[in-house]
Amino acid sequence: MTLEPIDPETALELYLDQKETEVSVATLRSHRSRLGHFVRWCDDRELTNLNELTGRKIHEYRLWRRNEGELSKVSLKTQMDTLRVFVRWLGTIDAVDPDLHVKVQSPNLRPGDNVREVMLDSEDAEAALDYLERYEYASLPHVTMALLWHTMMRMGAAHALDIGDYSPEDQCVSVVHRPDEGTPIKNGTRGERLVGLSGELCLLLDDWLRDRRPDVTDDYGREPLLATSQGRASKSAIRTYSYRYTQPCAYGDECPHGREPDDCEATRSDHVSKCPSSISPHAIRRGSITHHLTSDVPETAVSDRANVSTKVIEKHYDQRTKKEKMEQRRQYLKNI
């Protein structure tokens, strides 16, 4: 067969144009991000025509991506699986050999490899929130971290909240799917729910709304609960707060990695994720779910509150050991 020359950048844009009508915005963004590394690799090696792509070059890319990105086995598999889809598509437009995609190899995962164990420990969560309450009370980082920890909420759900979704009288927030206004939530309308709040968290929200929240609206005229002077707080801002305030040095603990905060690049706002101890909003959610389970909150209640099935909780979120689960069960059996 005759191949038609095409450069990596053009191929990626054509691929994303086709995918735009087939996948969600979030998935499209993920594909762009993952394949962007491949395009960068091609550029570094002056591979300007994908007709020249071979199984050996793909293997070289895999090794480069693993080492350059310091990726876990799970993350590397995700990236290579996306590349395989892309290479298969390239075969349909005569850019590469139609069978080349079978040479894109991904790591083999053992049972348990796809279960993430990183989470925010309850003691660290309390330390971070105590610091914020003392030194940055009712600030946007304080409100954001408190919401994420106490509600087990996904980052997207917190990002989607409006002032009108908060009811101080009923002490709850309403999580609503609004895809046409820039705030879709996980599971769509099935993810909509009322989430009860403690009196302490309501007091924090009241103080935030009364004294510190900027008087702004977003691009759709809505009043976001989590707001900056520019409008709705972005997901990247929420992620940055998570990384920043889960660094031990941020809440007064010594650095467990032997670093000096004044010299550590991870204390810079644009490098906070580089701290080995900092964690993502999803890890806060995982820690919160585990904390609630350890505190004897029934799995069904955690499932409804966090909008996640009990099966998924058991596989991906519950970090209790078998012994911890046994001891909790023992408490229920003492009086039988």
Score class of each variant (00 low, 15 high):
V302R: 03
T240L: 11
D206Q: 15
S242F: 03
S139A: 00
E133G: 08
P261Y: 02
H101V: 07
A237T: 15
Y245N: 02
V96P: 01
S139H: 02
E4Q: 12
A26I: 07
R62P: 03
A237N: 04
I163C: 09
G156M: 12
V74L: 15
D94C: 03
A301N: 03
A237S: 15
L132V: 07
A157E: 15
E136R: 15
A306P: 02
L83N: 11
A128D: 02
V104P: 07
C255W: 06
L83K: 08
V118Y: 00
H37M: 12
E117W: 06
Y15A: 08
L28G: 08
T294K: 11
L293S: 02
S280W: 04
R193Y: 07
V216M: 09
A157F: 03
L120S: 05
L333T: 11
L16F: 09
R65M: 09
L201V: 01
S106P: 05
E260L: 04
L71P: 08
E260V: 14
G191K: 05
E13S: 13
V115K: 13
Y251N: 12
D218I: 03
E126M: 05
K311I: 11
G221F: 07
P98I: 04
M119I: 02
Y15E: 03
Y137N: 14
S198I: 02
L83W: 11
D211N: 13
K235N: 13
R222I: 00
G191S: 10
A95S: 14
S30F: 00
R110I: 02
L333H: 09
K19P: 01
Y135T: 10
T240E: 12
